[in-house]
Design a binder for these strands. Structure first.
Lengths: 214, 214
DNA sequence: CGCTGTGAATGTATTCACAGCG
DNA sequence: CGCTGTGAATACATTCACAGCG
């Protein structure tokens, strides 16, 4: 909670690790552990204690010297840093196989994410429902976004449609996108975008196998 | 092709970008472009020309000064660097929704990846077939891996089963894993692992929205 | 004492800037 | 000339190491 004078920009690396720490804290709290040191947390997270203390120090002083961190306190601090104290509504673009898998992904709800609408352009799918979530024409997205109050979008569509879907959703006011399409999306500076490209990850693995083999 | 005396270790960042360059080269070649400069490629890739020249310089001298890079040459060099000159066989652990989506993901085949077997532990699924790919008991994976010659595995299973599935597949000889389960997998040094955690990506977005003005 | 919080040191990735070849 | 290839410079991320508080 301590607000520092001139905070540095927080890197994605740090933010990603905070999510990991958060997961661990949830788990060890379930196991009844009440206090944890940076060294113990580092052990679980697969990093080192200095990394953890440094990451946390960007946001405040959450520990007690000589003691460690109170799990409940640190967990709720990180929850608040990540903006997870409230629920987030998500729209899903793409009623294909990947969209279907994501729509039924149980972990979203557990982490406070709710898929409130699905968009597609296929008339055969529009009007349908998956697990109680309606599939709408992407051309109506502006209205639906407004009505539902969604703030995040997941793009789970083929590459060629990705930019167009992005632009529709952007026009509807969405500013944060998780893109599964294997395409570079051109964004404006107000937009936050993360890409997940499965083929690129696999190619990272083939590179490793190929180059380490003598 | 020039082999240097003492190569530095290539970072994942560089390898990831090589995949991106490769994609772009495929596309511009389809568009009939035969020569490309690092500046032009950087424009497509959303980076800068020095980054591209540096990335490529770790592997050889593929360009011509004053001219640029011949698209066909650079493409095939990167293909070879990434180990994509041959096909790779992949097994999929997890016959759930995500597994189903991945099994029908068309881009895999386009990029030389073939899913040759699916593993699960649910007797209701074992014995079935998806798009001609058989679903086997994970306890039989060692035999199936040997028979198919698979070298990569995708873990598309719930968190609690991930470590166990990893160990079965590892015992079967797989050394490269793409893990979608939201769990840290404990690996041995011979193993290459990449993680894709959808919730962590979404939390990166909520952090950005939450912190960039509330 | 034990462990946090943090400046300083180190390690790594990116970008600059220019020599040198086509 | 134009653009590559690359050492040097810079920016950034991680780790060290220890002062200082509980």
């Amino acid at each position: 909670m301590t607000v520092k004078g001139m905070e540095p920009r927080i890197s994605d690396y740090t933010v990603r690790r905070l999510s990991i720490y958060y997961r661990i804290l949830e788990e060890i709290e379930r196991n009844g552990i009440e206090v944890v040191s940076s060294a113990a947390l580092a052990e679980y997270a697969g990093t080192n204690s200095a990394q953890i203390r440094k990451d946390l120090s960007y946001f405040g002083n959450f520990g007690k010297r000589g003691r460690g961190y109170r799990v409940s306190v640190l967990k709720s601090e990180i929850k608040s840093i990540l903006g997870l104290q409230r629920k987030w509504k998500v729209v899903l673009a793409g009623a294909g196989n990947l969209g279907h898998a994501l729509n039924s992904y149980k972990d979203f709800a557990r982490h406070g994410f709710e898929i409130v609408a699905i968009f597609d352009s296929d008339p055969g799918k529009i009007g349908g429902t998956w697990d109680g979530v309606a599939i709408h024409d992407i051309r109506d997205c502006q209205m639906i976004i407004e009505r539902t109050g969604a703030e995040l979008a997941i793009l789970a569509i083929p590459g060629p449609s990705a930019q167009g879907a992005f632009e529709s959703l952007r026009a509807g006011g969405i500013r944060a996108f998780l893109n599964f399409a294997p395409r570079k999306i051109e964004i404006d500076p107000q937009v936050h975008l993360r890409n997940v490209d499965i083929t690129i990850e696999l190619e990272g693995l083939t590179y490793a196998l190929h180059s380490s083999r003598t």
